[in-house]
Structure formats: structure tokens, C-alpha cells
């Protein structure tokens, strides 16, 4: 088992919380993990990415080779396209549909969607709306993990454990809301693929 995932978005959107939950679940499942993060300048509203690798064998490189990623998991639609050179032939692009528009030349949203829809394996999900619907607008990231969950090679229960670990000290309600977000994301992805 080996999964190479590019996590991406815009600095400040909190992609590292995604890495933390999946990372906890992976380590809890006895897998090796390497996760290269972006710290520093780009965190101020620039494009950010994390190379996230899990495997049942030793992992060497902290970076995913070009053409090697099993998945691009993005919390912003245009950003999901920035890392296409990393995507493997049968890889999946799973992305939130809500643009984060902090530049003057942001493309037409429809043009971005068109590019995403061109890809054989993609899930375009309104994660922000789903998070709002369940009453936890800040759980968008957990919706995204849910949408990716069936491609991660990690048991769903382990992801719930990960959420408990991260949000446990913020109380049971917080944990429940985030688990709900995770489940909603999963349900959406299952329907999307039918």
C-alpha cells in the first residue's frame, strides 16, 4: 500500500489540518508517513502545498515525483490544477469548488471548472456549502477528507479517531460536528461517482 497525495490550497485555508487528521490515522494504522509542508512566505495568502506520502514500506523522498501522485486534494479549485504535473495517469483530483479570489487576474470560475471536468478522475465538491448545511462552516476541510476517504487506503474509523485526537480537547460537540462533516463529504463523493 502506498498513497502519494498533494494537498493544496491558499495560505491560511488550513490544509495542514487535513494533513494532521490523515497523518494521525495513517500512523495509527501502522503506516510510514512523510509529509513535506510549506512554511514561511507563501503562508501569507500565496499558493501552498503539502507533499503527503503514506506507505506500508519505508519512504525515501520527502517530495512526490512528478507524474507520481495518486491524488490531488485541494481546498480551492484553481489550485487543484496548479499541481497537475504531479498527478499520475490514473490519479484523482478531488477539489472544493469555492474559489478563493485574492488576485486581480483570477480566471472565470466556469473556465476553471471546465478544466477540472476534463480530467477522467475528478470530484468537484461544494464543500463550503455542505459544511454550512450541517452547521459547521469551518469544517470544510473535514468535508474534503470525507470526499477523499475511499481513496486513501485508510479505514474510515481511523479517520474518525484522527478527528477525535485533533478536536478532542475542544469538546464533544466539536468532534461530532467534524465527524458529521467527514461523513457528509463521503456521502457526496459516493453519489458523485455513480
Amino acid at each position: 500500500m502506498k498513497k502519494d497525495i498533494i494537498l493544496c490550497g491558499v495560505g491560511g485555508q488550513g490544509i495542514l489540518s487535513i494533513a494532521t487528521v490523515i497523518g494521525y490515522a495513517a500512523v495509527d494504522s501502522g503506516l510510514y508517513l512523510k509529509q513535506a509542508e510549506v512554511h514561511g512566505m507563501s503562508q501569507r495568502g500565496g499558493d501552498v502545498q503539502s507533499h503527503f506520502r503514506i506507505s506500508d514500506k519505508e519512504i525515501f523522498s520527502d517530495l512526490i515525483p512528478f507524474g507520481g501522485a495518486d491524488m490531488i486534494l485541494s481546498v480551492e479549485p484553481m489550485e487543484s490544477l496548479r499541481y497537475l504535473p504531479y498527478l499520475s495517469k490514473n490519479g484523482w483530483v478531488i477539489t472544493n469548488d469555492k474559489p478563493f479570489n485574492n488576485i486581480v487576474n483570477y480566471p472565470e470560475t466556469e473556465d476553471v471548472y471546465k478544466q477540472i471536468k476534463k480530467l477522467d478522475n475528478h470530484i468537484l465538491i461544494n464543500a463550503d456549502d455542505i459544511a454550512k448545511e450541517i452547521g459547521s462552516p469551518r469544517s470544510m476541510n473535514m468535508v474534503m477528507i470525507g470526499a477523499a476517504s475511499s481513496f486513501l487506503g485508510i479505514e474510515f474509523d481511523k479517520l474518525i479517531e484522527g478527528i477525535k485526537f485533533i478536536f478532542g480537547r475542544k469538546g464533544e460537540e466539536m468532534v461530532n460536528l467534524n465527524v458529521k462533516a467527514l461523513e457528509a463529504g463521503k456521502a457526496f463523493a459516493e453519489k458523485f461517482n455513480k
Binding site: F66, G67, L81
Partner: peptide, 30 residues
């Protein structure tokens, strides 16, 4: 990176997707 190293060893260039032109630079900001 792993690709540059492989290319240095056997001259092999990896096939990869291009970035669509819709993707614009997103420099850091205040």
C-alpha cells in the same frame, strides 16, 4: 527532486501533465 536525479542517471524524462493556462500566479500578500 527524484525526477531530476533519475534524469541525470538515465536521461529519462518523465511524462507529466501540463498546467492549464487558467492557473494564475498567486504571490503572497499582506
Amino acid at each position: 527532486n527524484p525526477n531530476l536525479v533519475l534524469q541525470a542517471i538515465n536521461g529519462e524524462k518523465v511524462e507529466m501533465n501540463l498546467i492549464p493556462e487558467e492557473v494564475k500566479g498567486r504571490p503572497p500578500q499582506f
